[in-house]
Write a protein that binds this DNA or RNA. Sequence first.
DNA 1: TGTCAATTGTCAGACGCTGACATTAGCCTC
DNA 2: GAGGCTAATGTCAGCGTCTGACAATTGACA
Lengths: 221, 221
Amino acid sequence: MTTDEAVAGTRTPPPAGLRERKKQRTRSALVRSALELFTRQGYERTTVDEIAEAVEVSQRTFFRYFANKEEVAFASQESAERHFFAALCGRPAGEAPLAALRGAVLDAWGSIGEAIEQLVPPELHLRMYRVIESTPSLLAVHLRRTAEMEERLAREIARREGLDIDTDPRPRLLVAMFGGVIRVAGKLWTEAEEDSVVTLRDLTAFHLDYVGPALAEKWDK
Amino acid sequence: MTTDEAVAGTRTPPPAGLRERKKQRTRSALVRSALELFTRQGYERTTVDEIAEAVEVSQRTFFRYFANKEEVAFASQESAERHFFAALCGRPAGEAPLAALRGAVLDAWGSIGEAIEQLVPPELHLRMYRVIESTPSLLAVHLRRTAEMEERLAREIARREGLDIDTDPRPRLLVAMFGGVIRVAGKLWTEAEEDSVVTLRDLTAFHLDYVGPALAEKWDK
DNA sequence: TGTCAATTGTCAGACGCTGACATTAGCCTC
DNA sequence: GAGGCTAATGTCAGCGTCTGACAATTGACA
C-alpha cells in the first residue's frame, strides 16, 4: 500500500459534476471562514450563525455539513491525521514498531503540508492548533480524537507484527507511550512562542530519541 | 505530609451550621440522582431538568452547584482522583518515580473506596465509569481531566527528584507513559464484562509490571 | 423540456446555560 | 426573641447549539 493510495477520498476525478463541486466549495468556504473567525476572536466567542453568514448560507446548512460546531474546528487536523496514518501504512515491513512510528511522524510532515494547503493556508492551520490547545472544550475533543487515532495505530502495529491485539497488550502500550511523547512535545511547542513548523518537528524528534532506547528493544514473540 | 492531610476539604468538623449541612445534602442528592439517571437511561437522554426535579430544586439551583451537566457526572471521579494524588504525596521520599506512581495507584484503592462510599454506592461509581468511557462527550472530558492530573503528577515527580520541570522533559514523559498504561488497563477492563474492582486493580498491576522494567532505570542527574 | 432527486431555506422547538431580580430562610446581635 | 443582614433559592427572560419537518429551489438526466 502506498502513501497516496492510503489517503482515501482525497483524490477527485477532476470534473465531478456541478453539484458536487458546489458542495466542495461550500464546505471549503465554511472551514476557512470558521478557522478565520476562531483564530481571530476565539472559539467560544464565535457563533455558528456568524460562520454561516460569512459564507451566506443558513445555519441549518452549516449543520448539514458538520455534525456540530466542534467538527469544523478539526477539519484541517482531520486531513493531517489521515496523512500521518497513511505514512505509517507505507513504512517498510521489516522496520521495528517504534522506528516505523517515528519515521511516519517525521516523514509525513511534507505530505501533510501539501494536503493542508489545498484546504486552508498552512499558517491558519497552525494558529488553529494553538486555539485547540488553549480552549478547554476543544482540547477535550482533541484528546478523544487522539485516543481514537492511537487505537487505529495500535491495530496497524499489531497487524505488522502479526500479533493479536485482543490478547497482547504490547501494541496498545507502545502506542500509548508514543502518544504521550508526541503530546508532551506538542504542548511544549504550544507554550513556547515559536511559530515555525521546523521547531515542532525537531522537538518531536528530540523527545522520541529520548525515550526511544527504553522502548525500542525487539519484541520476542 | 500524610495522606489524610493532603485530602483537603474532605474532613468536616461535624456540626457546621444548618445552612452548610443543608447545602451538602442538596449537593449529595444531586450527585446521586444524576448518576442514577445517567447509568439507567444514559447521559444524553437525561436532562438537567429531570435531575433537578428528582431532588425538588429548580434548574437554576442545579447550575449553582455544578458549572455544567458534565461536572456532576465526574463528582465521584473527582473524589477518587484527589485521594490518588494524596497517596502519591504520601510515598516515601527515597522511592523511585515509577515505583511511587505504582505504589500510589495500587495503595490508594482502599482510601478511595471509603471516600466514595460517603458520596454514592461504590457500585454506582463503577457503573458511571463505564458510562463515561462509552459516551463520546464524557470520554473527551475524562481525557482532558486525566491530562490535567498528569500535569500535576509530573510536577510532584519533578519536586521529589529535585528536577526543573521547565527544562527537563523526563517527569512529563514518565507520567505520560504511566498514564498510557493506566488508560489501556482501564479500557480493557471496561470492555470486559467483569464487574469486580479487584479485576481492575490486578489488571493495572499486570500492565504496570509489563512496562515497568523498561522505564524503571535510575535517572542519572 | 419535463420529471426526479438532491440541496437548501424556513420555522418551530428542545436543551444547556446565564444574568437580573424577587423571595425565602438561616444567622447574629441587641 | 424580634429584627436586620446575608446567603441560598426561585422565577423569568433570553442567547446559543442542535434537530425534525416541510416547503422551495436547483442540478441531473431521460
